[in-house]
Amino acid sequence: MKHIKIFLLAIIVLTLAKNESLSQTLNWESLRPEQRHILNVNAGFDYAFTYGIGYGYQLRSKLPIVLNIEHSQPAGDKVFDDFKTKIGGQIRVYQVNNFHFTAKVHGIFRRFENPYVRMLNFGSDMSAIVGYYKPKWFVAGEFGFDKAIVTHFKHSHLSRENFPGVKDGWYEPATGGNFHYGLQTALSFEKSDITLKVGKVVQQDFETNSTVPYYFQIGYNRKF
């Protein structure tokens, strides 16, 4: 089963990569058809204080589709011990006047390391966004689910001193899942958007909260 999951994830990731794909908080009303490329920088709190970069590519298609790749990592003394990379896209599936309905799907690869363990995870993030969009601004609500589908654990010598029998390897069933919901908004200029996202995170049982059950992100998009 796990092989199939990994295989499917790899196919999704590679297919999207092959199309030079790569997602951000977007204002559909300000994104012109000739603006094919979107660069993004952002910072905020996403389980930890993080900063990130992203690139988006607008396809020539009937429905507006932007494929994107994002990389973010938390602040801290060690630079590459923890990070999250998302690859996928967003599609505006429906529009009524200034109301836009958007679907986002991303494959996730993330890493965590502390003195006891290193974890590598393949996951997915699916979101729905509904909002009111104008050329100079928008406000939208988002609801999504981030699933940690399969995780590889590798424990350190320090960890084995405490528990010699600790087992390394791929763990299942899915090791985690969190819903997230909130608001996103932006101010748009000629070729730029200043974006803001705020919201709440709750575990998949809809009861248990994370230590910091909120997220926020401020970002800047440059379109060309």
Partner: peptide
């Protein structure tokens, strides 16, 4: 806010979730 200690405490919460009585997790 920007410390490695905070990362180590909270960043892994997107990897592992469990209910109060999912003891091993």
């Amino acid at each position: 806010l920007f410390s490695e200690g905070l990362n180590d405490a909270v960043f892994m919460e997107q990897f592992i979730t469990g209910r109060q009585n999912d003891h091993a997790i």
